[in-house]
C-alpha cells in the first residue's frame, strides 16, 4: 500500500502521544484568541467589574480550600489526643478499682482466717485454703524467684516512620504475645510455682494475647519492658531455662534486637490474680456454684 507507506513517512515522530501534544499545545483557552480577534481596535475597554467579581470568587475559593485543609489536620490530632486522654482516665479508674479489690480481699482473708482460727477444723481448712490460693493464683505469694526481662529493640521504640519498609523492620524488633507465651511456658516447664507478667498474676484462666500493637495479659494492656517474675527454685529455673528451649528462643529474639536478661532474686512477691471468675464450672456433687 503506497498510500499507507507515504503516510508513515510523513507521520510525526510523536504521533503516539497526540493527546499529550494536544494538551500542551492548546494549554491556553481558545476563547482568549477568539475574543482578541473579535475586538475592534477603537473599542473602549470595559470597566473591570466583571474581572473583579471573578477574582473575588477565586480568592474565596482558594482561602476556603486552604482553611479546610488547615482545619482538618488539627481535628484528627484532637480526636487522637482526646482518645488517649480517655484511655488514660479509664486505665487510672481501673487501677483504683483494682487497688480497692486488693484491699477488700485482704480484709476478707483476715476476717476469714480469724473466723476459721476459732476451731481446729477451721485451722486445718485455713491452711488448706492458703495452699489452694497460692497454687491457683487467688492469693498473693512470696518466695525466691527469677526475673526475666524482655524489651523491644531500640529501633522499634522510635516513633513509627511512614515508610512501610522501615515499619516492617521496626515491627520485627517488637516483643510479641507469642514471645511472652513461649517464655512463660518455658518458665513453667523449668519448675516455676507461680508466674506473673508485668504484675499480672497468671492463673489457669489467664490469656496472653495481643490487640493491635499492645500485649494484653488478662485484658490489661502492658508496655515494654516486660518482666516475667517466677517463684520457684531460682538456680534450677535459671539452668532449666538456659538449657531448654527458652534459652535458644531468647537467642533467636536477640537476633532481632530484642534484649533480655535473667536475674535470680532471693525474695519476690507476686500479687493475687485480679479475678478468678468461674461462672459455669462447678464441683461435681455440690449443688451450688463454685465461689
Amino acid at each position: 500500500m503506497p498510500g499507507r507507506a507515504q503516510y508513515d513517512a510523513t507521520a510525526r515522530p510523536d504521533a503516539s502521544m497526540s493527546l499529550l501534544t494536544h494538551l500542551t499545545d492548546n494549554a491556553l483557552d481558545a476563547g482568549y484568541a477568539e475574543a482578541a480577534a473579535r475586538r475592534q481596535p477603537g473599542q473602549p475597554s470595559r470597566p473591570g467589574w466583571l474581572l473583579a467579581a471573578g477574582l473575588i470568587a477565586v480568592g474565596v475559593l482558594l482561602t476556603t480550600a486552604a482553611a479546610q485543609v488547615r482545619d482538618r489536620a488539627p481535628a484528627t490530632a484532637q480526636a487522637r489526643a482526646q482518645l488517649s486522654r480517655e484511655i488514660e482516665a479509664r486505665t487510672a479508674a481501673t487501677d483504683a478499682l483494682q487497688a480497692r479489690v486488693e484491699q477488700l480481699r485482704a480484709a476478707v482473708t483476715r476476717a476469714r482466717s480469724d473466723a476459721l482460727g476459732l476451731t481446729s477444723t477451721g485451722t486445718r481448712l485455713s491452711a488448706q485454703l492458703a495452699i489452694l490460693e497460692a497454687v491457683t493464683g487467688a492469693g498473693a505469694v512470696t518466695g525466691p524467684g527469677l526475673v526475666v526481662r524482655l524489651d523491644d529493640a531500640a529501633k522499634a521504640k522510635q516513633p513509627a516512620a511512614g515508610d512501610a519498609r522501615a515499619q516492617a523492620t521496626q515491627d520485627q524488633g517488637r516483643v510479641t504475645d507469642r514471645d511472652l507465651q513461649t517464655i512463660v511456658n518455658e518458665v513453667w516447664a523449668a519448675g516455676a510455682e507461680a508466674v506473673s507478667v508485668d504484675g499480672q498474676r497468671l492463673t489457669a484462666l489467664s490469656a496472653i494475647r495481643s490487640a493491635g500493637e499492645a500485649i494484653l495479659v488478662d485484658f490489661r494492656p502492658l508496655s515494654p519492658p516486660y518482666d516475667i517474675v517466677a517463684i520457684g527454685n531460682a538456680q534450677r529455673m535459671q539452668t532449666g531455662l538456659a538449657e531448654g528451649l527458652g534459652g535458644s528462643y531468647l537467642e533467636v529474639l536477640h537476633g532481632y534486637g530484642i534484649t533480655s536478661s535473667i536475674q535470680t532474686r532471693k525474695q519476690v512477691t507476686l500479687p493475687a490474680a485480679s479475678g478468678l471468675p468461674v461462672r459455669y464450672a462447678s464441683v461435681p456433687g455440690t449443688t451450688g456454684r463454685a465461689p
Partner: peptide, 10 residues
C-alpha cells in the same frame, strides 16, 4: 477584587 476575596475567605 482578589484581595477582597482572600480577606472575605479568611
Amino acid at each position: 477584587g482578589l484581595v477582597v476575596g482572600i480577606v472575605a475567605g479568611l
